[in-house]
C-alpha cells in the first residue's frame, strides 16, 4: 500500500480498464476460425438451394457484398473503422458482441 513499491494503477482514481488495444495472435486465430465458420454456413445453404435451383435474396446479397475470409485484408479482419479514433481504426474487440456478429466491410479509403 505505502512505500516505494506500491501499485501505480490504484493511484489514478481506482477505475482501470485493462482491455488491450489490439488482439493477441490467439484471438486473431479464433477470429479467422469464426469468419471461416460463417463462410461455411453460407456455402452450405447456397449449395443446398442451388441443387433445387432456388435463389434467396439474403444469400445472394451476402455473396455479392461480403468478402470471404481468404479475400479479406488483415486490417479488416482485426480492426474496424471509427471516426473518433486516431487514424480512424480501433480493434474489432471493441465492438459489442464482436464474436457473434458479422463485421467485414469498412468505408472505402479508410
Amino acid at each position: 500500500m505505502f512505500g516505494a513499491f506500491r501499485p501505480t494503477n490504484s493511484l489514478g482514481g481506482g477505475l482501470l480498464w485493462k482491455i488491450p488495444w489490439r488482439l493477441s495472435k490467439f484471438q486473431k486465430a479464433r477470429q479467422r476460425k469464426r469468419l471461416r465458420a460463417v463462410d461455411t454456413v453460407v456455402a452450405v445453404v447456397d449449395q443446398a438451394l442451388a441443387k433445387k435451383s432456388i435463389t434467396t435474396k439474403a444469400v445472394e446479397r451476402w455473396k455479392e457484398e461480403m468478402p470471404i475470409e481468404q479475400e479479406m485484408v488483415p486490417k479488416d479482419k482485426y480492426t474496424i473503422f471509427d471516426r473518433k479514433e486516431k487514424k480512424y481504426r480501433k480493434g474489432i474487440h471493441k465492438l459489442p458482441k464482436w464474436t457473434r456478429v458479422s463485421q467485414r466491410v469498412n468505408p472505402p479509403g479508410y
Binding site: R34, A37, V38, T40, V41, V42, V45, A48, L49, K51, K52, I54, T56, K57, A58, V59, W62, R100, V101, S102
Partner: peptide, 17 residues
C-alpha cells in the same frame, strides 16, 4: 431445404452449424 428456412439460417449464421 426451402428459401424460408434459408433466410432464417442467414439471420443466425454466426451462431449455428
Amino acid at each position: 431445404v426451402t428459401p424460408e428456412v434459408a433466410g432464417q439460417i442467414m439471420k443466425v449464421k454466426e451462431l449455428v452449424a
